[in-house]
C-alpha cells in the first residue's frame, strides 16, 4: 500500500509539474490559433520567431547588463517585431487564396530563423537566467517549483490580458470581426492588412513571453528547442481546435501534463513520440479538436 501511495504521489506530482510547464505550450498554441483564426492560415515560423525573441532578450540582457525583470518584456517586444516581419515576408504579398504558398513561405521562415540562430550561437546552448528557481513550496506530500509556478503565473496574466483585449477593445473586436467575416469587415471600413499585421504582432508578443518562459523553466536556450516547440505548438492547436483560444489553453496544459507523465513512465527519449501519437489519436477520433468547429469559408 505504501508503494502504491508513493507511486501515486510521484505520478500526480509529474502531471502537476507538466501542467505548469504546459502554460508555455498553451501560449504558443494561442499564437498559432490567433493567426489561424484571423487568416485561416498556419504560420509555421511562429514558434521560431518566439524563440528568436527569447534569444534577442538574452543578448540584450547580457550586453546591457539589464535587470532580470525586463527579460520577458524585451523578449515579447522582439518577438512581436519578428512576427510582423514574418507577416510581411511570408503572408502580406502572397495571394490570399494561395494557402500552400503561404504555408511553404512560413516553413521557409522557420528554417531561416533557425539558421540565423545556429549561425549566431554556433549551435551551442546558452544559459538562460531563471527566476525563483531556489523557491520551493511544500504542499502536503507535493513540492511546487518556484520557477515553474512563476512561468505559469506569467502565462496566466498574458492570457488574461489577451482575452481582455480581444473581447473588450476595438482592436480585439475588429480582429474578431475580420476573422468571422472578412468580406463584411473590409466593407465596414476595416483594413485587412492592418488587422492581420496587428494579429501577427500580438501573437508575437505572446510568443516572446512563451519563448522566455520556456527558456527560463529549462534554464537554457538552444536551437534544438525550436523544432519541438513548433511541433508541440501545432499539436496543441490541432487538439484544442484550430481557431479556438479556450481549446489552445486546455490542450496546452493537457499536453504539458501528458508529456510529463509519459516521461515519468517511459523516460525523456520516448516522450515526444507519445505526444505525436496523441496527435494521431485526435486526428482520427476528433479531427476538429476539443473546441473546433467545422470550418467553412466562402
Amino acid at each position: 500500500m505504501d508503494d502504491f501511495w508513493f507511486e501515486f504521489v510521484e505520478v500526480t506530482q509529474s502531471i502537476g509539474d507538466g501542467v505548469l510547464f504546459g502554460s508555455t505550450y498553451a501560449l504558443i498554441g494561442i499564437g498559432f490559433t490567433l493567426i489561424f483564426g484571423a487568416m485561416g492560415k498556419l504560420n509555421v515560423a511562429y514558434a521560431a520567431a518566439a524563440m528568436a525573441g527569447a534569444y534577442s532578450s538574452l543578448a540584450i540582457y547580457i550586453l546591457f547588463d539589464a535587470p532580470l525583470v525586463v527579460i520577458f518584456i524585451v523578449s515579447a517586444i522582439c518577438a512581436a517585431i519578428l512576427g510582423y516581419l514574418v507577416y510581411l515576408t511570408c503572408f502580406r504579398f502572397i495571394p490570399v487564396h494561395n494557402h500552400l504558398a503561404a504555408l511553404m513561405a512560413s516553413v521557409g521562415g522557420l528554417f531561416f530563423i533557425d539558421e540565423v540562430i545556429v549561425h549566431a550561437t554556433r549551435g551551442s546552448p546558452l544559459a538562460f537566467p531563471s527566476m525563483f528557481s531556489e523557491a520551493y513550496f511544500e504542499v502536503g506530500p507535493y513540492g511546487i517549483r518556484g520557477d515553474l509556478l512563476f512561468v505559469f503565473f506569467i502565462g496566466l496574466i498574458s492570457t488574461g490580458v489577451l482575452l481582455y483585449v480581444l473581447f473588450r477593445t476595438r482592436l480585439g473586436l475588429a480582429t474578431r470581426a475580420v476573422a468571422q467575416q472578412d468580406v463584411a469587415a473590409r466593407l465596414c471600413g476595416m483594413s485587412i492588412h492592418l488587422t492581420n499585421s496587428t494579429t501577427f504582432a500580438v501573437a508575437g508578443l505572446l510568443g516572446g513571453i512563451a519563448g522566455a518562459m520556456t527558456a527560463a523553466a529549462v534554464g537554457i536556450l538552444s536551437p534544438v528547442m525550436i523544432l519541438p516547440l513548433t511541433i508541440k505548438g501545432l499539436i496543441v492547436t490541432v487538439i484544442g481546435g484550430l481557431g479556438s483560444i479556450p481549446g489552445a489553453i486546455i490542450a496546452g496544459l493537457f499536453v504539458g501534463g501528458f508529456e510529463n507523465v509519459v516521461m515519468y513512465f517511459r523516460g525523456i527519449d520516448e516522450r515526444d513520440m507519445y505526444v505525436v501519437a496523441l496527435l494521431f489519436i485526435f486526428l482520427v477520433f476528433r479531427p476538429n479538436g476539443l473546441f473546433g468547429k467545422t470550418i467553412t469559408r466562402d
Binding site: V165, T169, R170, L171, L173, A174, R176, A177, Q180, Q181, V183, A184, A185, C188, G189, M190, S191, L194, T195, T198
Partner: peptide, 29 residues
C-alpha cells in the same frame, strides 16, 4: 454577412468606430 460571434451592439459598434478615427482604420485600443 454579419459578424456572427459579436453581439448586436458590438456589430454596430465596430462599424460605427471604423470610420470615426482617421488614423485608426479599425484598429485602436
Amino acid at each position: 454577412r454579419l459578424f456572427p460571434g459579436l453581439t448586436v451592439w458590438q456589430n454596430l459598434w465596430v462599424a460605427r468606430n471604423s470610420t470615426e478615427d482617421t488614423r485608426a482604420e479599425g484598429i485602436s485600443f
